[in-house]
């Protein structure tokens, strides 16, 4: 079976700097594969290992996607081919524009049986793109998938909701968004990293796709600020465990929280 896995390339959330004026900057940030998409990639790779076929990784975004280290990184995690849509207009895309672009790219990519998305992107975490994409492609789509099985052209999933697990079935092709605990992504091996450099990569611009007239955002960002910091006392106790604990208990009873 042919599986398309969608991943986002994002500034590492740990490298985001809150500036004194309240604005935020990720100029210094390292760009990485969105953490939760690693589970989506692993799901795709495991399914193809079990059923044969190939995995095509797909990402859309701004110029950061041209980063060769990023391309090698995703391919070293198992996908056979990489498709990228790189366009400045996509660098601060909302989920609408992203889903539209992904849908157009997928139509151009050809035959597929399953599209897999992550739970949410590490930067925006809207948990939306997979569902919107499914609807745009007119395919059955569902989120919170914590287990996948494929048998006779059917897809059977466990869907992990707040208070229950649903076991659902549909016919392929379909679009699913998987949870972060669906699997433990493997680490790339030396051989996979070396192989990654030789796998085929296809790059498109927005103008190569047929999404005429629809390439716009539906959200207008009014402002972005770092959250208010609470002033804390920051008293650090460095002492032998018993003394440290006594000191802490002293403070806490003074605070009236014991």
């Amino acid at each position: 079976m042919n599986i398309i896995v969608c991943y986002k390339f994002v500034p590492d959330p740990e490298d985001i700097i809150a500036k004194p004026d309240g604005s935020i900057s990720f100029e210094q940030a390292e760009w990485v594969i969105s953490e939760y998409d690693l589970m989506a990639i692993e799901t795709a790779v495991q399914l193809v290992e079990a059923h044969g076929g190939k995995v095509m990784a797909l990402s859309v975004g701004g110029s950061q996607l041209s980063n060769s280290k990023g391309k090698k990184d995703v391919l070293s995690r198992g996908p056979d081919e990489l498709y990228l849509v790189i366009d400045d207009a996509l660098s601060e895309s909302d989920t609408h524009l992203t889903a539209q672009t992904l849908a157009a790219a997928i139509r151009k990519m050809g035959e597929f049986d399953l599209v897999i998305c992550g739970e949410g992107s590490a930067d925006l975490y809207f948990q939306q793109v997979g569902l919107q994409l499914g609807e745009l492609l007119g395919l059955p789509t569902i989120n919170a998938v914590s287990k996948v099985e494929v048998a006779d052209g059917k897809l059977i999933v466990d869907r992990s909701l707040e208070d229950e697990v649903e076991v659902l079935e549909t016919v392929l092709p379909a679009v699913i968004s998987v949870t972060t605990d669906i699997n433990q992504p493997r680490l790339p091996t030396m051989k996979e990293i070396l192989k990654a450099g030789k796998k085929p990569i296809t790059e498109w611009k927005l103008s190569d796709l047929e999404l005429a007239g629809k390439a716009e955002k539906r959200i207008e960002v009014l402002n972005v600020r770092s959250p208010k910091q609470v002033d804390r006392k920051r008293i650090k106790i460095t002492a032998k465990p018993d003394e440290a604990v006594q000191t802490l208990i002293g403070y806490l009873s003074k605070e009236g929280v014991l």
């Binding site: 499914g134 745009l136 909701l161």
Partner: peptide, 18 residues
């Protein structure tokens, strides 16, 4: 989770987002 699924599909169906 259900609410987000409904919202997402609605968003796409209505040519908007969430």
């Amino acid at each position: 989770k259900r609410g987000k699924a409904v919202a997402g599909r609605l968003g796409a169906a209505l040519d908007t987002t969430v």
